[in-house]
Amino acid sequence: MDDIIKRNPLRSLIIAILIAVFLWLVFAPWPPELVAKWGRKQIFLNALLGGITLGALYFLVAAGFTLIFGLMRVVNLAHGSLFLLGGYLGYEISSLTGSWFIAFPVVFLVVGLLGLLMQRFIFSKMEGEELRQTLVSIGISIVLADLMLWLWGGQSYSILAPGFLTGPMELPIINSINASTGATNWLRYPAVRVWILIAAIVIGVAMWLVLNRTALGMLIRAGVDDREMLAASGVRIQLVFLAVFGFGAGLAGMAGIIGGTFQSLSPGEDTRFLLASLVVVIVGGMGSIVGAAIGSLIIGVTEQMGFVYAPTYSVVFTFLIMAAVLAFRPQGLLGARR
Protein backbone atom coordinates (compact mmCIF):
# COMPACT_ATOMS: atom_id res chain seq x y z
CA MET A 1 0.00 0.00 0.00
CA ASP A 2 2.74 2.43 1.00
CA ASP A 3 4.60 1.39 -2.10
CA ILE A 4 1.71 2.24 -4.35
CA ILE A 5 1.35 5.68 -2.78
CA LYS A 6 5.03 6.36 -3.16
CA ARG A 7 5.07 5.26 -6.78
CA ASN A 8 2.00 7.24 -7.85
CA PRO A 9 1.80 10.22 -5.54
CA LEU A 10 -0.44 12.26 -7.85
CA ARG A 11 -2.88 9.48 -8.63
CA SER A 12 -3.08 8.53 -4.96
CA LEU A 13 -3.83 12.10 -4.03
CA ILE A 14 -6.61 12.39 -6.59
CA ILE A 15 -8.15 9.14 -5.41
CA ALA A 16 -7.92 10.27 -1.78
CA ILE A 17 -9.65 13.55 -2.61
CA LEU A 18 -12.39 11.76 -4.55
CA ILE A 19 -13.00 9.42 -1.62
CA ALA A 20 -13.15 12.35 0.78
CA VAL A 21 -15.63 14.22 -1.45
CA PHE A 22 -17.73 11.08 -1.75
CA LEU A 23 -17.79 10.50 2.02
CA TRP A 24 -18.71 14.13 2.59
CA LEU A 25 -21.56 13.83 0.05
CA VAL A 26 -22.88 10.79 1.89
CA PHE A 27 -22.50 11.80 5.52
CA ALA A 28 -22.60 15.59 5.75
CA PRO A 29 -25.82 17.56 5.46
CA TRP A 30 -25.89 19.27 2.07
CA PRO A 31 -25.65 23.06 1.86
CA PRO A 32 -28.59 24.76 0.11
CA GLU A 33 -26.55 25.65 -3.01
CA LEU A 34 -25.86 21.98 -3.67
CA VAL A 35 -29.49 21.11 -3.06
CA ALA A 36 -30.46 23.79 -5.56
CA LYS A 37 -28.17 22.25 -8.12
CA TRP A 38 -28.58 18.52 -7.62
CA GLY A 39 -31.90 18.25 -5.83
CA ARG A 40 -32.53 16.94 -2.33
CA LYS A 41 -29.88 14.86 -0.67
CA GLN A 42 -32.38 12.10 -0.11
CA ILE A 43 -32.69 11.55 -3.86
CA PHE A 44 -28.93 11.15 -4.14
CA LEU A 45 -28.76 8.82 -1.14
CA ASN A 46 -31.64 6.73 -2.38
CA ALA A 47 -30.07 6.38 -5.80
CA LEU A 48 -26.75 5.46 -4.25
CA LEU A 49 -28.20 2.92 -1.85
CA GLY A 50 -30.51 1.60 -4.53
CA GLY A 51 -27.45 1.15 -6.74
CA ILE A 52 -25.53 -0.64 -4.04
CA THR A 53 -28.37 -3.05 -3.29
CA LEU A 54 -28.93 -3.62 -7.01
CA GLY A 55 -25.20 -4.29 -7.23
CA ALA A 56 -25.58 -6.82 -4.42
CA LEU A 57 -28.26 -8.63 -6.40
CA TYR A 58 -26.16 -8.51 -9.58
CA PHE A 59 -23.25 -9.91 -7.60
CA LEU A 60 -25.28 -12.93 -6.46
CA VAL A 61 -26.15 -13.74 -10.09
CA ALA A 62 -22.78 -12.87 -11.62
CA ALA A 63 -20.64 -14.65 -9.01
CA GLY A 64 -21.82 -18.06 -10.18
CA PHE A 65 -21.54 -17.05 -13.83
CA THR A 66 -17.96 -15.87 -13.48
CA LEU A 67 -16.89 -18.86 -11.40
CA ILE A 68 -18.36 -21.30 -13.92
CA PHE A 69 -16.65 -19.50 -16.77
CA GLY A 70 -13.35 -19.19 -14.95
CA LEU A 71 -13.16 -22.84 -14.04
CA MET A 72 -14.88 -24.60 -16.91
CA ARG A 73 -14.69 -22.04 -19.72
CA VAL A 74 -18.42 -22.56 -20.12
CA VAL A 75 -20.23 -19.35 -21.00
CA ASN A 76 -23.57 -20.39 -19.59
CA LEU A 77 -26.05 -18.12 -21.33
CA ALA A 78 -28.86 -20.00 -19.55
CA HIS A 79 -27.72 -18.43 -16.29
CA GLY A 80 -30.45 -15.78 -16.44
CA SER A 81 -33.05 -18.53 -16.90
CA LEU A 82 -31.83 -20.19 -13.71
CA PHE A 83 -32.33 -16.84 -11.96
CA LEU A 84 -35.90 -16.50 -13.19
CA LEU A 85 -36.73 -20.13 -12.50
CA GLY A 86 -35.43 -19.72 -8.96
CA GLY A 87 -37.66 -16.69 -8.55
CA TYR A 88 -40.80 -18.46 -9.77
CA LEU A 89 -40.09 -21.53 -7.63
CA GLY A 90 -39.44 -19.27 -4.65
CA TYR A 91 -42.78 -17.59 -5.23
CA GLU A 92 -44.59 -20.93 -5.33
CA ILE A 93 -42.82 -22.28 -2.26
CA SER A 94 -43.21 -19.20 -0.14
CA SER A 95 -46.89 -18.82 -1.00
CA LEU A 96 -47.44 -22.56 -0.44
CA THR A 97 -45.65 -22.79 2.90
CA GLY A 98 -46.12 -19.19 3.95
CA SER A 99 -42.44 -18.98 4.77
CA TRP A 100 -40.05 -16.80 2.89
CA PHE A 101 -37.02 -18.39 4.48
CA ILE A 102 -37.82 -21.98 3.60
CA ALA A 103 -37.82 -21.02 -0.07
CA PHE A 104 -34.07 -20.34 -0.04
CA PRO A 105 -32.69 -23.79 0.76
CA VAL A 106 -35.32 -25.50 -1.36
CA VAL A 107 -34.67 -23.31 -4.39
CA PHE A 108 -30.92 -23.60 -3.88
CA LEU A 109 -31.20 -27.37 -3.97
CA VAL A 110 -33.65 -27.61 -6.87
CA VAL A 111 -31.97 -25.09 -9.17
CA GLY A 112 -28.53 -26.33 -8.09
CA LEU A 113 -29.61 -29.85 -9.04
CA LEU A 114 -30.73 -28.58 -12.45
CA GLY A 115 -27.28 -27.02 -12.87
CA LEU A 116 -25.65 -30.30 -11.86
CA LEU A 117 -27.68 -32.16 -14.44
CA MET A 118 -26.80 -29.66 -17.15
CA GLN A 119 -23.10 -29.99 -16.38
CA ARG A 120 -23.19 -33.77 -15.97
CA PHE A 121 -25.23 -34.68 -19.03
CA ILE A 122 -24.56 -31.86 -21.46
CA PHE A 123 -21.60 -29.58 -20.88
CA SER A 124 -19.17 -32.25 -19.71
CA LYS A 125 -19.86 -34.17 -22.94
CA MET A 126 -18.43 -31.37 -25.04
CA GLU A 127 -15.55 -30.16 -22.93
CA GLY A 128 -13.23 -27.83 -24.78
CA GLU A 129 -15.81 -27.01 -27.45
CA GLU A 130 -16.53 -23.56 -26.11
CA LEU A 131 -18.70 -22.36 -28.95
CA ARG A 132 -20.83 -25.49 -28.93
CA GLN A 133 -21.33 -25.27 -25.17
CA THR A 134 -22.42 -21.68 -25.52
CA LEU A 135 -24.84 -22.53 -28.32
CA VAL A 136 -26.29 -25.34 -26.22
CA SER A 137 -26.76 -22.96 -23.31
CA ILE A 138 -28.62 -20.59 -25.64
CA GLY A 139 -30.86 -23.47 -26.70
CA ILE A 140 -31.54 -24.36 -23.07
CA SER A 141 -32.40 -20.75 -22.29
CA ILE A 142 -34.90 -20.59 -25.19
CA VAL A 143 -36.56 -23.81 -24.00
CA LEU A 144 -36.60 -22.80 -20.33
CA ALA A 145 -37.98 -19.36 -21.17
CA ASP A 146 -40.87 -20.85 -23.07
CA LEU A 147 -41.58 -23.51 -20.43
CA MET A 148 -41.70 -20.79 -17.77
CA LEU A 149 -43.97 -18.67 -19.95
CA TRP A 150 -46.21 -21.73 -20.32
CA LEU A 151 -46.36 -22.44 -16.60
CA TRP A 152 -46.42 -18.96 -15.12
CA GLY A 153 -47.82 -16.89 -17.97
CA GLY A 154 -46.93 -13.36 -18.91
CA GLN A 155 -48.01 -11.54 -15.75
CA SER A 156 -45.56 -10.35 -13.15
CA TYR A 157 -45.15 -11.80 -9.68
CA SER A 158 -43.88 -10.28 -6.49
CA ILE A 159 -42.72 -12.32 -3.53
CA LEU A 160 -43.83 -10.99 -0.15
CA ALA A 161 -41.07 -10.50 2.37
CA PRO A 162 -41.76 -11.54 5.98
CA GLY A 163 -43.23 -8.91 8.29
CA PHE A 164 -40.13 -7.87 10.17
CA LEU A 165 -38.32 -7.17 6.93
CA THR A 166 -40.98 -4.94 5.45
CA GLY A 167 -41.07 -1.26 6.20
CA PRO A 168 -38.22 1.16 6.55
CA MET A 169 -35.33 1.26 8.99
CA GLU A 170 -33.20 4.17 10.06
CA LEU A 171 -29.61 4.34 8.90
CA PRO A 172 -26.88 6.34 10.65
CA ILE A 173 -26.70 8.73 7.70
CA ILE A 174 -27.92 12.30 7.99
CA ASN A 175 -30.64 12.97 5.49
CA SER A 176 -31.18 16.63 6.30
CA ILE A 177 -31.21 18.94 9.27
CA ASN A 178 -34.41 20.76 9.97
CA ALA A 179 -33.48 24.41 9.71
CA SER A 180 -35.96 25.67 12.30
CA THR A 181 -35.74 23.01 15.01
CA GLY A 182 -32.19 21.85 14.34
CA ALA A 183 -33.37 18.24 14.65
CA THR A 184 -31.43 15.69 12.65
CA ASN A 185 -33.44 13.82 10.10
CA TRP A 186 -31.89 10.36 9.66
CA LEU A 187 -32.18 8.46 6.39
CA ARG A 188 -34.93 5.85 6.32
CA TYR A 189 -34.52 2.99 3.92
CA PRO A 190 -36.47 -0.26 3.21
CA ALA A 191 -35.24 -2.84 5.67
CA VAL A 192 -35.42 -5.72 3.22
CA ARG A 193 -32.91 -4.04 0.94
CA VAL A 194 -30.49 -3.46 3.76
CA TRP A 195 -30.71 -7.11 4.73
CA ILE A 196 -30.18 -8.20 1.15
CA LEU A 197 -27.06 -6.10 1.00
CA ILE A 198 -25.79 -7.64 4.24
CA ALA A 199 -26.60 -11.13 2.96
CA ALA A 200 -24.75 -10.50 -0.30
CA ILE A 201 -21.72 -9.24 1.58
CA VAL A 202 -21.79 -12.30 3.85
CA ILE A 203 -22.08 -14.65 0.88
CA GLY A 204 -19.35 -12.81 -1.00
CA VAL A 205 -16.98 -12.91 1.94
CA ALA A 206 -17.80 -16.57 2.54
CA MET A 207 -17.06 -17.38 -1.11
CA TRP A 208 -13.81 -15.47 -0.90
CA LEU A 209 -12.85 -17.34 2.27
CA VAL A 210 -13.70 -20.71 0.75
CA LEU A 211 -11.73 -19.89 -2.37
CA ASN A 212 -8.72 -18.54 -0.52
CA ARG A 213 -8.58 -20.47 2.72
CA THR A 214 -9.76 -24.01 2.07
CA ALA A 215 -8.37 -26.98 0.19
CA LEU A 216 -11.37 -27.01 -2.13
CA GLY A 217 -10.83 -23.33 -2.85
CA MET A 218 -7.18 -23.96 -3.66
CA LEU A 219 -8.28 -26.65 -6.11
CA ILE A 220 -10.78 -24.35 -7.79
CA ARG A 221 -8.33 -21.49 -8.06
CA ALA A 222 -5.64 -23.80 -9.38
CA GLY A 223 -8.19 -24.97 -11.94
CA VAL A 224 -8.98 -21.41 -12.99
CA ASP A 225 -5.28 -20.72 -13.52
CA ASP A 226 -4.28 -23.94 -15.17
CA ARG A 227 -6.83 -26.59 -15.98
CA GLU A 228 -4.46 -29.02 -17.63
CA MET A 229 -2.23 -29.04 -14.58
CA LEU A 230 -5.17 -29.75 -12.32
CA ALA A 231 -6.47 -32.52 -14.55
CA ALA A 232 -3.00 -34.05 -14.75
CA SER A 233 -2.57 -33.96 -10.98
CA GLY A 234 -5.10 -36.74 -10.58
CA VAL A 235 -7.74 -34.68 -8.82
CA ARG A 236 -11.21 -35.81 -9.70
CA ILE A 237 -11.76 -32.62 -11.58
CA GLN A 238 -15.21 -33.57 -12.80
CA LEU A 239 -16.43 -33.59 -9.19
CA VAL A 240 -15.04 -30.11 -8.64
CA PHE A 241 -16.71 -28.96 -11.86
CA LEU A 242 -20.04 -30.42 -10.73
CA ALA A 243 -19.79 -28.77 -7.34
CA VAL A 244 -19.00 -25.37 -8.82
CA PHE A 245 -21.72 -25.61 -11.45
CA GLY A 246 -24.30 -26.72 -8.90
CA PHE A 247 -23.31 -23.98 -6.47
CA GLY A 248 -23.32 -21.27 -9.14
CA ALA A 249 -26.73 -22.37 -10.41
CA GLY A 250 -28.16 -22.58 -6.89
CA LEU A 251 -26.87 -19.12 -6.10
CA ALA A 252 -28.54 -17.73 -9.23
CA GLY A 253 -31.78 -19.42 -8.14
CA MET A 254 -31.64 -17.84 -4.68
CA ALA A 255 -30.89 -14.50 -6.29
CA GLY A 256 -34.14 -15.02 -8.17
CA ILE A 257 -36.08 -15.07 -4.88
CA ILE A 258 -34.39 -11.89 -3.80
CA GLY A 259 -35.01 -10.27 -7.17
CA GLY A 260 -38.66 -11.30 -6.92
CA THR A 261 -38.87 -9.78 -3.45
CA PHE A 262 -37.59 -6.34 -4.09
CA GLN A 263 -38.49 -6.07 -7.73
CA SER A 264 -40.75 -8.43 -9.64
CA LEU A 265 -40.60 -11.51 -11.81
CA SER A 266 -41.83 -11.61 -15.39
CA PRO A 267 -40.72 -13.00 -18.74
CA GLY A 268 -37.73 -10.98 -19.93
CA GLU A 269 -36.16 -10.71 -16.49
CA ASP A 270 -34.02 -13.73 -17.43
CA THR A 271 -32.36 -11.83 -20.28
CA ARG A 272 -32.06 -8.71 -18.17
CA PHE A 273 -30.12 -10.50 -15.48
CA LEU A 274 -28.09 -12.50 -17.96
CA LEU A 275 -27.00 -9.25 -19.56
CA ALA A 276 -26.25 -7.69 -16.21
CA SER A 277 -24.04 -10.69 -15.44
CA LEU A 278 -22.30 -10.37 -18.80
CA VAL A 279 -21.55 -6.70 -18.32
CA VAL A 280 -20.47 -7.24 -14.72
CA VAL A 281 -17.97 -9.93 -15.63
CA ILE A 282 -16.72 -8.07 -18.70
CA VAL A 283 -16.06 -5.06 -16.48
CA GLY A 284 -14.83 -6.95 -13.43
CA GLY A 285 -12.81 -9.63 -15.18
CA MET A 286 -13.65 -13.22 -15.99
CA GLY A 287 -13.26 -15.77 -13.26
CA SER A 288 -12.61 -13.32 -10.46
CA ILE A 289 -14.98 -13.13 -7.47
CA VAL A 290 -13.57 -9.82 -6.30
CA GLY A 291 -13.85 -8.55 -9.87
CA ALA A 292 -17.50 -9.60 -9.93
CA ALA A 293 -18.11 -7.71 -6.68
CA ILE A 294 -16.49 -4.54 -7.94
CA GLY A 295 -18.14 -4.86 -11.35
CA SER A 296 -21.56 -5.38 -9.74
CA LEU A 297 -21.12 -2.36 -7.55
CA ILE A 298 -20.05 -0.14 -10.44
CA ILE A 299 -22.83 -1.30 -12.75
CA GLY A 300 -25.53 -1.21 -10.04
CA VAL A 301 -24.66 2.29 -8.88
CA THR A 302 -24.22 3.60 -12.44
CA GLU A 303 -27.57 2.19 -13.46
CA GLN A 304 -29.44 3.74 -10.53
CA MET A 305 -27.64 7.08 -10.69
CA GLY A 306 -28.29 7.25 -14.42
CA PHE A 307 -31.90 6.28 -13.88
CA VAL A 308 -32.41 9.11 -11.39
CA TYR A 309 -30.33 11.88 -12.95
CA ALA A 310 -30.48 11.15 -16.72
CA PRO A 311 -33.30 8.70 -17.37
CA THR A 312 -33.10 8.65 -21.18
CA TYR A 313 -29.41 7.87 -21.17
CA SER A 314 -29.04 5.50 -18.23
CA VAL A 315 -28.22 2.55 -20.52
CA VAL A 316 -25.58 4.61 -22.26
CA PHE A 317 -23.58 5.10 -19.06
CA THR A 318 -23.45 1.39 -18.35
CA PHE A 319 -22.46 0.74 -21.92
CA LEU A 320 -19.77 3.43 -21.91
CA ILE A 321 -18.19 1.89 -18.84
CA MET A 322 -18.11 -1.47 -20.57
CA ALA A 323 -16.67 0.06 -23.75
CA ALA A 324 -14.01 1.94 -21.79
CA VAL A 325 -12.95 -1.22 -19.97
CA LEU A 326 -12.79 -3.15 -23.25
CA ALA A 327 -10.78 -0.43 -24.90
CA PHE A 328 -8.21 0.05 -22.17
CA ARG A 329 -8.23 -3.17 -20.20
CA PRO A 330 -9.86 -5.90 -22.31
CA GLN A 331 -9.28 -8.57 -19.69
CA GLY A 332 -11.44 -6.66 -17.20
CA LEU A 333 -10.49 -4.64 -14.14
CA LEU A 334 -9.31 -7.65 -12.13
CA GLY A 335 -9.03 -10.26 -14.85
CA ALA A 336 -5.80 -12.04 -15.58
CA ARG A 337 -4.47 -11.60 -19.10
CA ARG A 338 -4.83 -14.92 -20.84
Binding site: V75, L77, T134, L275, L278, V281, I282, M286
Partner: peptide, 8 residues
Protein backbone atom coordinates in the same frame (compact mmCIF):
# COMPACT_ATOMS: atom_id res chain seq x y z
CA UNK B 1 -15.76 -13.41 -25.44
CA UNK B 2 -16.98 -12.19 -28.83
CA UNK B 3 -20.44 -13.66 -28.21
CA UNK B 4 -20.68 -12.03 -24.81
CA UNK B 5 -19.49 -8.61 -25.90
CA UNK B 6 -21.63 -8.46 -29.03
CA UNK B 7 -24.65 -9.61 -27.02
CA UNK B 8 -24.00 -6.87 -24.50
Amino acid sequence: YTIMITLA
